[in-house]
């Protein structure tokens, strides 16, 4: 150390809050792109006005919501719930070992590489697209929805589990290893306690997410309330649409409340 090192790399004063030319150019490009893309979308004033009047009529027909046709609503909603529950359970059960195998601090590269690829593959396609494929494979109905959401769950929480395990303190693991514990016991005592509450957090988050998606996969025939919703739209049965949407939102809100209780119990 020889006193204060001169900061020769920078000029003495930078103008405050100056933006670099590259940043400015990026913003100009973005704006130009937005204009160009908007033009492609046939975004005209006339269309906007027509849309507004359509929208007003549409809203008028949505209210008051009609629960007269409650039987398919209840049946579809229950099926959505069942899909979400089963997909979450199976998805989490598969994600635990996959997350462990993907953790680069505990496993050798020849194990993590295939596990990480599998998880990434599960994450690459939107659940609804996966649902389409499963509908073709196992036919219409809840099974396709469950399988699609299992894939989505593995893709999402498999990754989060692995990241959580990679962030643990290895000192605690070392101490358990030093006691002569077997690999399984090292995982149970050295690794799991460090990540358990985060796992509960991810698991409940995934359940919420599966619940939302289970109301959608029906649009492609994979069971649940989505099919009812889609056909109501196609029949212009908008007061029923409104009833379905209100029910979905209510169920999601209740689901989130329950998962918060769960997190409290496990101190996540």
């Amino acid at each position: 150390m020889s006193g204060a090192a001169p900061l020769r790399a920078q000029p003495a004063y930078l103008p405050p809050f100056r933006q670099s030319n590259a940043q400015r150019a990026a913003f100009v490009l973005l704006a130009a792109y937005a204009l160009y893309a908007a033009a492609q979308f046939d975004l005209t004033w006339a269309r906007f006005i027509i849309g507004l009047s359509n929208g007003a009529r549409f809203l008028g027909r949505m209210f008051p919501p009609s629960f007269a046709n409650w039987e398919p609503l209840l049946k579809g909603m229950l099926e959505s719930l069942e899909i979400a529950v089963l997909a979450s359970v199976v998805g989490i059960a598969l994600s635990l070992p996959l997350g462990l195998l993907s953790a680069r601090n505990l496993m050798p590269a020849w194990v993590t590489w295939p596990a990480r690829s599998l998880v990434a593959l599960c994450r690459a396609l939107h659940p609804v697209i996966v649902a389409i494929l499963f509908v073709k494979a196992v036919g219409f109905g809840a099974l396709a929805g469950i399988l699609a959401l299992v894939v989505a769950s593995v893709g999402f929480i498999g990754k989060l589990f692995a990241e959580a395990i990679e962030e643990i303190s290895l000192k605690q693991v070392e101490a358990v290893r030093a006691s002569g514990a077997s690999f399984a016991n090292v995982i149970t005592y050295g690794v799991l306690p460090q990540v358990f509450s985060r796992f509960v957090g991810f698991g409940t988050y995934q359940f919420d997410s599966n619940l939302r998606n289970s109301t959608m996969v029906g649009i492609v025939g994979a069971g649940g309330i989505g099919a009812t919703l889609f056909s109501a739209f196609q029949r212009f049965d908008y007061d029923f649409v409104c009833a379905i949407l209100l029910t979905i939102i209510a169920v999601i809100v209740i689901g989130e409340t329950l998962t918060n209780v769960l997190k409290k119990v496990f101190r996540a």
Partner: peptide
């Protein structure tokens, strides 16, 4: 889970 498994139509 059991309830969901039993009543879901698979």
């Amino acid at each position: 889970v059991v309830a969901a498994g039993r009543s879901v139509e698979i």
